[in-house]
């Protein structure tokens, strides 16, 4: 392959990657239904769906710095980044929520991490935990987060929400909880 063709090939790949990464789709009434593998729900209208490496779903209304909803999955029996703990299928929900709490509290670039509540939850018949917390980022801006976590078919799933406390949390939390309420899991 001569250099000119090689250069062209690299450019095409770059453009392809950039376009692919930057896909943002506004959620309107006509496209609120969402399904991915065994999971489905209704997306909040007025929010946007975008792709984020490693996430099953990424949503934001005003920008991910202001608020987001993520769904992510992690293999069980794999060391977590900060605590080096492993999520195993035999963990009690209380233990699982403790691990995630510790993992969150050790995140880089956050301070004043505080748990507001740590409770059992149920997501379409699946036992889960709900962890609500607040923290400040490196600019000392307050954030409010909620995580639902559960183990399903040997994988740990996390549906997380986070928003800037001022202005954004109050107007976004209902959309998140509605998303959770409508969340369906195909058990078969």
């Amino acid at each position: 392959m001569n250099n000119r063709i090689k250069g062209l090939f690299v450019n095409v790949v770059l453009v392809f990657l950039l376009v692919g990464c930057a896909t943002i789709k506004l959620i309107e009434e006509k496209n609120v239904k969402w399904k991915s593998g065994k999971f489905s729900s209704e997306l909040p209208t007025g929010w946007s769906k975008y792709s984020w490496p490693g996430n099953i779903l990424s949503l934001t209304r005003d920008g991910s710095y202001l608020q987001y909803i993520f769904i992510s999955k992690t293999k069980t029996n794999k060391e977590l980044q900060k605590t080096k703990k492993k999520i195993t299928e035999d963990l009690l929900l209380q233990e699982l929520s403790e691990i995630i709490k510790d993992e969150l509290s050790l995140s880089d670039g956050i301070t004043n991490f505080e748990v507001i509540s740590q409770k059992p939850a149920n997501i379409d018949g699946i036992d889960a935990f709900r962890l609500e917390y607040i923290f400040k980022n490196s600019e000392m801006v307050d954030y409010h987060g909620v995580v639902y976590g559960f183990v399903f078919k040997k994988k740990y799933y996390e549906i997380s929400y986070c928003a800037m406390q001022q202005h954004y949390h109050a107007v976004s939390i209902d959309a998140f909880e509605k998303f959770i309420k409508n969340f369906k899991v195909e058990q078969s």
């Binding site: 009690l92 929900l93 929520s97 740590q118 409770k119 059992p120 935990f129």
Partner: peptide, 10 residues
């Protein structure tokens, strides 16, 4: 306790 609901459940 923050995790009291879990414990009550058990």
């Amino acid at each position: 306790a923050k995790d009291a609901d879990f414990i009550r459940r058990y």
